[in-house]
Design a protein around this nucleic acid. Structure first.
Lengths: 188, 188
DNA sequence: ACCTGAACACCGTTCAAGT
DNA sequence: ACCTGAACACCGTTCAAGT
């Protein structure tokens, strides 16, 4: 469970909770199928709820994104903390970035949303990413402290840069040389 | 003059030509002020023409982009051909990429449009970029042939990658380390 | 307290009527 | 041949009425 997901802590009526789950499932399905620009109307329709219910549960499209991503974010967060004890700081960093790239491939356009929202601390995506950003920051700092990364680059900058790389329209991941170029380029 | 700009070759009625220029100026003004997502309605309003006239002259938003960019593209095209005779192939390549980054800063969101349209040969942006892409390709190939660039990277890939880099919201150019990271990363 | 769905707003696009 | 601007379409967002 990602504690940063908004509104999940306080009790809800049973039907509200059911609708929340239905909207989440519909959102995943619609975004996976039609990309992150798909009409929200379709999400409500597929969830079998009124449009107002969608807006009550997820005030903006970004709130829905954040909720959908939270499972992947939890996994990335846990993985970053595990990799913190891996013997080679550089390999650990690279391994995490490749996992991030693959995780983001599930929903077309998702990393673009992340790249755009991450700099604004008030955005739901940035809030949802907070724990993962912290653990990735640790992973990044370990590599940088070991002199394996150029000192003028921040963890947030690298994360933003990877998120913004163009995607292969078929596989959804970054085109191979792009990631390699960045990984080579961040060395000191 | 960029011969790839659509519809500029055949004769037009005087008022049509006036409207074309007015729409181009209004587009520059609106996009510079409000970014590339601004309502097209505002472009027509500021040009003092009906909406239908805008759609007649520029069937899609991308067509208007392409026309607006064509002056910058011509400059970039000429510069690439000039730099082809510069003594150092690597410096010439870097110099051109920095010029591209600065040129793109004038209209917020413009390089994103380029990054998205460039892969589709039928897009107006791709058509407008054709001569520039060819001359940049020569500049790139010269550096690669000299063994200064990794051999598995294409000119189009590098161009796309640079275009997609996140921008500083204030200056409009890429955040400094991003460009440096890519330039270091493309070395063999 | 939450849900529904009609109504509204916004803006891209089309097209009948006009010059 | 081109222009105008009202009309239409699409979709995000709000809100009055219902449970």
């Amino acid at each position: 469970m990602n504690s940063a997901t908004p509104g999940r802590a306080r009790p809800q009526r049973a039907d509200a909770k059911r609708n929340y789950e239905a909207l989440l499932a519909a959102g995943k399905s619609v975004f996976a199928q039609s990309g992150t620009q798909a009409p929200l109307e379709e999400v409500a329709r597929r969830a079998g709820v009124g449009q107002g219910t969608l807006y009550r549960q997820f005030p903006t499209r970004e709130h829905l994104f954040a909720a959908i991503m939270s499972e992947s974010i939890d996994l990335l967060d846990r993985t970053a903390r595990e990799l913190l004890t891996a013997p080679d700081p550089w390999d650990a960093l690279v391994q995490w970035l490749r996992l991030y790239d693959e995780s983001a491939a599930r929903y077309r356009g998702m990393t673009r949303v992340v790249a755009e929202g991450i700099a604004d601390d008030s955005s739901p995506v940035a809030v949802a990413c907070t724990p993962m950003r912290a653990s990735f920051g640790d992973l990044f700092d370990r590599a940088r402290a070991a002199g394996l990364v150029r000192p003028d680059l921040t963890a947030l900058q690298l994360f933003t840069m990877i998120s913004a790389l163009p995607k292969d329209p078929e596989r959804g991941t970054t085109v191979p040389p792009y990631l390699d170029v960045v990984l080579k380029g961040i060395k000191p």
